[in-house]
């Protein structure tokens, strides 16, 4: 090609492959960012602003909407108590409280993974026009769900205390490690699917189906003992699912089992001590870290092409 660039003005630059200040997104997943503390703070502020935006947009002008989303677990509580305790006679004492103690954290998990999946695709215009740390997109979806979850949990506690339920005890402290593992695993999976969904748009559909099935391999509407009776020494396989560990720990922390921890045929809680949970949480935490490592890798690999793929 004959080029008029022969009129080019400048001495040909030596191709510089040094450390450019402005790397394209994701190129060199490994590059150590010498970012100052101020910059890190700015990123947290951005994350907070995005979460606040989501909350504001969702509940704008309707404090009723907000109230509804908090009342939602109460409604579930009433319906499930009726269905399982009165109609189906599940045999689990205070079935509603048992269910809610596991269901809230599951809903937060599945809601945020599902929302995070669409987080990058849904902000296509932003991604194509502005350079900013893209990881905040899935993280803000997680943050949004986390805020909801915390409020719903508080509502549940108020109701339980209102019913004179014995809630307060040292076992509540289990919520801290369980919440941490839940957050870690949710972030890990959210980051992974948000990136995959940009390249493979059917990720969202597959994920939604998977979450429906996944719901049932957590002991939420049935007693943990049913699984244990069936799987016996293979129960550990069931517990490789970090959410199953999180759910059982939440139940141990919140739910107060009847005398003997039994539905008659099967124990309700996985264990009455603490150690069992802490050990399983440690394993779940390691699994979550592995997923997080994978998720960040995939995200960093794919993010350089987000603007092009969208």
């Amino acid at each position: 090609m004959s080029r008029v660039a022969d009129l080019s003005t400048l001495p040909k630059p030596e191709p510089t492959r040094g450390a450019p200040a402005n790397r394209p997104r994701g190129s060199g997943a490994r590059h150590v960012d010498h970012r100052s503390r101020a910059q890190t703070r700015v990123r947290w502020e951005l994350l907070r602003n995005l979460i606040r935006k989501d909350l504001k947009v969702k509940y704008k002008g309707s404090s009723l909407g907000f109230a509804w989303s908090l009342a939602n677990p109460l409604l579930l509580l009433a319906v499930y108590t009726f269905v399982f305790q009165v109609v189906l006679k599940s045999g689990i004492d205070n079935f509603g409280f048992y269910l809610m103690s596991g269901l809230l954290v599951w809903n937060a998990f599945s809601g945020s993974v599902s929302a995070a999946c669409g987080a990058v695709v849904g902000n296509a215009n932003l991604v194509k026009k502005v350079r900013f740390p893209l990881l905040v997109l899935p993280l803000s979806a997680v943050g949004f769900s986390a805020v909801h979850f915390a409020l719903q949990l508080a509502v549940l506690f108020v109701v339980m205390l209102g019913f004179g339920y014995s809630l307060l005890g040292p076992e509540l402290l289990l919520l801290i490690p369980a919440g941490a593992v839940a957050l870690l695993f949710t972030v890990a999976l959210s980051v992974l699917v948000s990136a995959l969904n940009v390249r493979y748009r059917d990720t969202q559909h597959l994920l939604d189906v998977a979450l429906l099935a996944w719901f049932w391999i957590n002991p939420m509407v049935y007693a943990f003992g049913l699984i244990e009776n069936r799987l016996n020494e293979w129960t550990w396989v069931y517990m490789l699912n970090p959410m199953a560990v999180v759910v059982t720990t939440f139940q141990r922390a919140i739910y107060d089992p009847p005398e003997g921890n039994s539905t008659g045929s099967a124990p309700i809680l996985a264990d009455l001590g603490y150690r069992y949970y802490l050990e399983h949480l440690a394993i779940a935490g390691l699994i979550s870290l592995a997923v997080l490592w994978l998720g960040l890798r995939v995200f960093r690999r794919l993010q350089a092409d987000f603007a092009e793929d969208l």
Partner: peptide, 30 residues
């Protein structure tokens, strides 16, 4: 830094403001 070059290298030093579209990311509800 929004698109990755297929080959070659790019470097820009200092704080960049790119006005590729004004108000990209504005949310009408806010």
């Amino acid at each position: 830094g929004i698109l990755r070059p297929t080959h070659g290298s790019v470097s820009v030093s200092g704080r960049i403001a790119s006005l590729l579209e004004l108000g990209a990311g504005f949310n009408g509800e806010l």
